[in-house]
Design a protein around this nucleic acid. Structure first.
Lengths: 341, 341
DNA sequence: CTGAAAGCGCTTACAG
DNA sequence: CTGAAAGCGCTTACAG
């Protein structure tokens, strides 16, 4: 049987309320001797507060949901980049005395269920598309504080942190331009007028403008963010773009696939073609050659997300605008001066 | 304000109990018309049951904890291999109507707190050392059903699934032996007389015995399971073992590091030295050459873990012995016939 | 500094 | 087929 407040109270010869006050650190209300005695007895008995009882009677559950998209019968769709986020988020929440409920979301309707059933104090959306974030309304989220990571949705309910995608792409492209490259392929998934990929594309464009380089729409290659698609692109790259001397890929996995495709078709990286990625996964260090890429500060992003959310929960300070997390360029071995043509 | 059973009951003109029965599918007890009406009204009102109220009054919380080791101020220590496990476990639990609480554990004492505070129905230990698993007693786990994945601890409280490490290593080593290799280095972390690495070592030894090959204790290389340590080993491998023609590494990341070290020191893989890994991470396909490795059936392992745990919870059928998950050898490009010496 | 009462939203026997 | 009562373990005003 579980040890309850009542058990501790009886043993200590005080009321349940007093024990509750001691456990919750409302010390001003209890005499030092009582505090000491109650704490000792609680420890002896191995008392652990019941979180469900707490969340039922108090307004707060100290439970945060981490919602991640999941195709219906599929596993969670956590990208390698987001994996690190999960670990960091858990750590930050634990440090602040919150617990984490990890939940895959197969369809919009599940969001409400996920948020309400455990009376979550808040929730973090990780890896959702902007359209999905747009779809959240006051009705679906209720009174739960929600925050989306890496979202460019303008939904005021979900404002959170995101990496500086624009600057990252601009740095990466500028690095290539500075090395003398003028025919740089942009490789990434299809994009619209808003969102992560769009921002990275704009950064790529801006870098060209920064140095007065012309830029050609021909150089956009739309591919899925997979190693296989990257390899495919790498294999045919110089057939499609004989003048190209560099590639900026919107993800490391993609970039590494491209490097493989290039290698298999006899193109040397970086001697013939330079390649830059985005994310700075561990993978980059393992690749041959080591991949030059844009590094995101995952720890900062996770910590910021948690801080914003908890702030919003505890102080009612809903953020008014997104926080941008700084990125940096990590130069490794996959980029070199443009070859003379 | 939250919609409660009472709200639905009032609107439907029935008692709270009847609504509860309908929501929980105890249909035998309610007339079809009432069921229909209650369901319609619950949907209209957007009723979502309160999980904390449920778990407080019922014996079941339908909450499963996923406990993962975490150094005190550190992020979760989830290996690449275990990442996939998390996603699969969440999916299986969701399919069965359970929720997942993800919790980092910095010290043994936190286990009790984690298990009791949310009245977990059960918990899965992922990535714990056998010694830590050994330390769990009836007192620390209370009445919570617990299961450890990939553990060789003999603790009867934590019996769960684990990959067939012995057979995996045996297959990998046999593959090398069949290719004519007779000087095969075993590279892995330090191990004792029990545990995952020990099992893999025994498999390595057994494979030698299977073909009547002699085996030399000199060939054991103790390294951390990191790319950096692998590279270090690869760099000096032929200095330390001039006769070696192959390496069996207990992890893919390690194997890929070894391949890099070998390449950097001018040794060709697989022409001069063959390398085999363990895990079959996505990484293996990205490596150059693609890594031959032992594949674990992660989906099966996760599904088995969840099935065993839920079975234990719902039917009181505590497993009496561990379930071994089949492994297989995936031949890729990092292994070739032994060179003539 | 300490306590008795009400209530959070549900489920579980027990009646009818 | 349907319901009234008790209780799960806590917290929140409100008294004293």
């Amino acid at each position: 049987m579980r040890v309850t407040l009542r058990d501790v109270a009886e043993r200590a010869g005080v009321s349940i309320m007093t024990v509750s006050n001691v456990i919750n650190g409302n010390r001003a209300r209890v005499s030092p001797e009582t505090i000491e005695r109650v704490q000792r007895i609680a420890a002896e008995l191995g008392y652990v507060p019941s979180a469900s009882a707490r969340s039922l009677s108090a307004r707060s559950s100290r439970l945060i949901g981490l919602l991640v998209p999941a195709a219906d019968e599929d596993s969670l769709m956590i990208s390698p980049h987001n994996v690190a986020m999960v670990g960091q988020i858990e750590r930050e929440l634990r440090r602040l005395g919150y617990h984490l409920l990890l939940r895959g979301i197969a369809n919009q309707r599940e969001v409400t269920e996920a948020l309400q059933s455990w009376s979550l104090d808040g929730a973090i959306l990780l890896g959702f598309l902007d359209e999905q974030v747009d779809g959240l309304t006051a009705k679906t989220v209720g009174s739960v504080h929600v925050l989306a990571i890496d979202s460019y949705s303008t939904n005021p309910l979900t404002i959170g942190p995101r990496s500086d995608d624009f600057t990252g792409a601009r740095l990466a492209t500028r690095h290539l331009l500075d090395l003398g490259h003028r025919r740089i392929v942009f490789a990434g998934p299809a994009f619209t007028g808003v969102g992560v990929v769009h921002e990275r594309f704009e950064g790529y464009r801006q870098a060209h403008a920064d140095v007065g380089a012309t830029w050609d729409g021909q150089f956009i290659e739309t591919v899925n963010t997979t190693h296989a698609d990257g390899r495919e692109l790498g294999l045919g790259l110089l057939d499609r773009h004989p003048e190209a001397t560099a590639v900026f890929a919107t993800a490391d996995v993609l970039a590494i696939g491209i490097m493989r495709g290039l290698a298999e078709s006899g193109v040397r990286v970086p001697d013939d073609v330079s390649v830059v990625g985005f994310d700075d996964l561990d993978l980059c260090e393992y690749a041959v050659p080591r991949l030059t890429t844009v590094s995101q500060d995952i720890t900062a992003k996770a910590a910021t997300a948690v801080r914003m959310l908890i702030d919003s929960i505890e102080n009612g300070a809903r953020p008014s605008e997104p926080v941008t997390i700084t990125v940096s360029l990590v130069k490794r071995e996959s980029t070199a001066p443009a070859p003379h043509q």
